[in-house]
């Protein structure tokens, strides 16, 4: 056997190896092929025995040819090994194929009640302007709910608020104004007041689409030596725009509340028609959103503030009304029925 024969033989073996590898499917098969073509008993290993029959001059070339042949065989086998490994990974991954469109488990967050969302929003607006949030009891006395607010017994204004009485003295507050009185008394008539008062209030009303015996109110109060009606107007414009959009305008109309003088009702331009008139605003272009005014001196006095030195403004708005206008909610009872299909729309 000379070098030429050797190369030919190796070439043949290589072709056989390639053939054999083609049929290999597992690492196990590959191991068998490997020992058959590269093991101690493999032909290529046996070829070295012919070395002694080779002329000395050709010996290096012979040895090199065998080694290179082994090298190529190894590469072929290792390439196959990598191919099989990859195929196995692929198979495993394929087995993990899933329907990506199936539903996820329900991790949906719950909903904060829409009325509380709006209250928090208004609180944040006012906290940003330096207001404190004050609260008080829902079971009030006649004195705080009415008398200190310039509504003595037998005053016609009591008809404006049909009251739920507990006994001669106690009642369910009809507005959060008593919190204003309590705060002013707490402050002792000496320092400025800048508060908002959210809370539940109650009136004797038959529940229907637009009336509720229980509702949610926020009132605001500022008392200082310099507080003006223009300050009230500017503040209410901020509220209206925060609630209904930055392009809203407001309109003040004269009204009457015993605890403010002058008193106004405040309309916002209808977001539905932009003031042109539509069924939502009863063709007026405006929607009433709140009542407000300059604090009546009688209230300042009964709350320990000297009207000669202090003046102030107050306003009150109904949260349900804001929500109904903002979202087009047609029935006030939705807020208290808590049909979760309703609540969950406001996540």
């Amino acid at each position: 056997m000379d070098v030429k024969d050797l190369n030919k033989r190796i070439k043949t073996l290589e072709e056989q190896l390639i053939q054999a590898l083609e049929e290999v499917e597992s690492q196990h098969d590959l191991q068998q092929v490997k020992s058959r073509y590269l093991g101690k008993k493999a032909e290529i290993s046996q070829l070295m025995r012919h070395m002694k029959d080779i002329p000395d001059d050709d010996k290096p070339a012979f040895g090199k040819a065998v080694n290179e042949g082994k090298q190529r065989f190894t590469e072929l086998i290792e390439a196959k090994r990598e191919e099989i490994r990859k195929a196995e990974v692929e198979r495993k991954l394929r087995a993990e194929r899933i329907d990506l469109t199936l539903d996820a488990p329900d991790f949906t967050p719950g909903s904060v009640h829409i009325l509380n969302q709006i209250v928090e929003e208004i609180e944040d607006l006012f906290i940003g302007m330096g207001y404190r949030v004050k609260e008080g009891p829902e079971i009030e006395t006649d004195e705080y709910n009415f008398e200190k607010l310039n509504i003595p017994k037998d005053h016609p204004a009591r008809d404006m608020q049909d009251t739920l009485y507990i006994d001669d003295e106690h009642l369910l507050r009809t507005h959060t104004s008593p919190v204003q009185v309590r705060t002013m008394l707490e402050y002792g008539g000496e320092k400025p007041v800048k508060i908002i008062c959210p809370g539940k209030v109650y009136r004797r009303d038959d529940d229907d689409a637009t009336h509720s015996h229980q509702f949610y109110q926020i009132e605001g109060l500022v008392v200082d030596e310099t507080t003006t009606m223009s300050d009230l107007k500017g503040t209410l414009l901020k509220v209206a725009r925060a609630m209904f959009g930055e392009d809203r305008e407001i309109r003040l109309r004269p009204s009457y509340f015993p605890f403010t003088e002058p008193s106004v009702e405040v309309d916002v331009t209808c977001a539905n028609c932009d003031g042109a008139g539509c069924s939502v605003c009863k063709h007026s272009g405006y929607i009433e959103i709140l009542g407000a005014g300059m604090v009546n001196n009688a209230v300042l006095k009964s709350s320990g503030y000297d009207p000669k030195r202090y003046q102030g403004f107050a306003f009150g708005l109904g949260i349900e009304r804001i929500a109904m206008l903002r979202y087009g909610i047609e029935d006030i009872r939705h807020f208290y029925v808590n049909d979760l299909r309703f609540n969950r729309q406001f996540r």
């Binding site: 302007m129 404190r132 310099t226 107007k233 500017g234």
Partner: peptide, 17 residues
Amino acid sequence: YNALPDTLPTTLSTGAL
């Protein structure tokens, strides 16, 4: 009333919950 300017109270205060 609608002819009045739109101003904000000048009272300085900090707001907080």
